[in-house]
Simulated scan of single mutants.
Amino acid sequence: MSTNAALRPLCPKVIFEGTRLTKKTDLAFALNEHARFVGPRKYRYHSPLVSAEWSGLTNEAWGPSLISFPPEYEPTVLEAYRTWVRLFELHRYYSWIVDRFHLSTQVQQARSGHRFDFDWLEERLHPLGFAVVLCCRQADSFPRAREQRLRVSGNPAQYDDLGIFLHEQDELRAAARRSRLPLLELDVTGRGVDELADAVADWFAEHNLLKAD
């Protein structure tokens, strides 16, 4: 049965990728309440925001995640990805905001010589309308971003070597450009979260990605 386009719900599906200090998590939360992205709301209700960074594979704080894991967890990780994509398929007419996903896994695992082929995953994500927003910043802006983060970080040592983030940014950029999913490369340098959220909403509207067919 066909449905009038004006009556179809907003159900964008976005995967945020980016190294640390690129505002991707703040942006994900902002879009989760953005009227032009998920619709106007008079009160908060359940809207999923999920992440491959979750460290729930073991009973320990800051343990392995779907991105950073030892080889023995590969079967579990792949099963988790299959579970996620099946859930997305079953709820294809809902909005999904993902803060880091399979591209981060590919980049992280490639450093230890493990190449992950996620073509099968993207073949299922693509018809659902998923797109990648790669959050980047100019190299000379990382020191200032680190200063701001150190005011709230509980683990400041992880920001000692900014070269790690610059290298990861290049790796993620290469992975995103190889992806078959639509890609917005978003420069966050000197821009506030609200401005960036508007830019993402505009891009999704321009590419007809806010509603499902």
Rank of each mutant, 00 (worst) to 15 (best):
M1R: 12
S2F: 13
T3R: 14
N4M: 13
N4C: 15
A5S: 12
L7T: 09
R8Q: 11
P9Q: 05
C11S: 15
P12W: 02
K13M: 03
K13S: 02
V14P: 05
V14F: 04
V14C: 08
F16C: 03
F16W: 01
R20Y: 01
K23E: 03
K24P: 03
T25Y: 13
A28L: 02
L31T: 12
L31M: 07
L31I: 02
N32E: 01
N32C: 00
E33M: 07
H34K: 13
R36I: 00
R36H: 14
F37M: 09
F37H: 08
F37D: 11
F37G: 06
V38W: 00
G39V: 08
P40I: 01
R41D: 11
Y43W: 14
Y45W: 13
H46I: 04
H46G: 00
S47Y: 09
P48W: 08
W54L: 09
S55C: 15
L57W: 02
T58K: 14
T58P: 00
N59G: 01
A61S: 10
A61W: 11
W62R: 11
P64Q: 02
L66Q: 11
I67F: 03
S68C: 07
F69C: 14
P70G: 10
P70R: 03
P70H: 02
P71W: 15
Y73M: 13
T76D: 13
T76N: 08
V77Q: 06
L78G: 04
L78F: 10
E79D: 12
Y81I: 06
R82L: 04
R82H: 12
F88I: 11
E89R: 07
L90A: 06
H91S: 03
Y93T: 08
S95P: 15
S95Q: 05
W96G: 12
I97R: 06
V98Y: 05
L103V: 06
S104W: 06
V107C: 02
Q108A: 15
Q108C: 11
Q109S: 13
A110H: 03
A110R: 07
S112H: 05
G113F: 05
H114A: 00
F116Q: 14
F118K: 09
F118I: 12
F118H: 12
E123I: 06
R124Y: 10
P127H: 09
L128S: 06
G129K: 04
F130A: 10
F130V: 13
L134D: 08
C135D: 10
C136W: 04
R137F: 09
Q138F: 03
D140Q: 07
D140S: 02
S141I: 01
R144C: 02
R146D: 06
Q148M: 12
R149Q: 08
R149V: 00
R151Q: 15
S153V: 09
A157M: 08
Q158Y: 07
Y159L: 13
L162Y: 15
L162S: 11
L162F: 15
G163K: 08
F165M: 10
H167D: 14
E168W: 00
E168D: 13
Q169E: 07
D170N: 03
R173P: 00
R173I: 05
A175K: 09
A176E: 06
R178E: 10
R178C: 10
S179Q: 09
L181P: 06
L181G: 05
L184N: 04
L186R: 05
D187K: 05
V188E: 03
T189W: 00
T189A: 07
T189D: 02
G190I: 15
G190S: 11
R191G: 03
V193N: 11
A199S: 10
V200G: 13
V200N: 09
V200H: 07
K211T: 15
D213T: 02
